[in-house]
């Protein structure tokens, strides 16, 4: 009596459409960034100098590597090597956590310097700087939220691979989680230069 559809092509299509909406969600913020960067070029440059480009680069490398490992886990499942796939998923999750730890220290450092919206030091900065940091917190914050969602999806995939619901015949869940993870990576690829490298 079940009328569930087992349409992997449809599921993948659904994931792609969802990724479009995510891109438009961030697109709104990128638009705001573009407007204010045009209006306050100087302020953006000087504020970006306060960000630690080394931490940013490190996080970029971490995310790129994690995109590779998640892709490898999919290939491993397709080839029937579930054990290897599980290992790759774990590595991906560890890399994601490393990213978040970096982010935590980065934000923490800013808070120590009292560089957060509404602080006294912040209010003495120029308008361009204030807006830059507003965008910095909002965009990286929203991105971090997506990292967390991605990690949750990967962990579910892990258990699905483990109990065999994801296997070499049926791996769409892992594939879609991987797609989502690439999206997280993709957005960061744009955030990184716009935030850290515009000095």
């Amino acid at each position: 009596m079940s009328h569930e559809f087992n349409d992997d092509v449809g599921k993948k299509m659904g994931m792609w459409i969802f990724i479009f909406t995510e891109l438009f969600l961030f697109g709104g913020l990128f638009l705001v960034y573009a407007v204010f960067r045009a209006n306050y070029t100087e302020g953006f440059h000087s504020a970006a100098a306060d960000l630690d480009a080394f931490v940013g680069t490190l996080n970029t490398v971490i995310l790129l590597a994690s995109s590779a490992t998640v892709a490898m886990s999919i290939t491993a499942v397709q080839k029937g090597n579930n054990k290897l796939a599980l290992r790759f998923i774990i590595v991906t999750v560890i890399l994601a956590l490393a990213f978040m730890v970096n982010k935590y220290f980065e934000w923490g450092h800013k808070f120590d310097l009292k560089l957060y919206p509404g602080s006294e030091i912040m209010e003495q900065l120029g308008k361009g700087e204030i807006l830059f940091f507003g965008l910095y917190y909002m965009m990286t914050g929203l991105h971090a939220l997506h990292v967390i969602i991605g990690v949750v999806l990967l962990m579910i995939s892990y258990f699905k691979v483990k109990n065999g619901t994801v296997n070499s015949q049926k791996f769409i869940f892992l594939e879609n989680s991987g797609l989502y993870w690439h999206l997280v990576d993709f957005i960061w690829i744009f955030l990184f230069p716009l935030m850290y490298l515009v000095t």
Partner: peptide, 26 residues
Amino acid sequence: PIVGITLLMVIAERTLNIGFFDPALG
């Protein structure tokens, strides 16, 4: 999603002092 992020920005303006729409903050 465009209106979604816009509403989030207004919420941020009300709660977190992030002033994308507030001339006093640029």
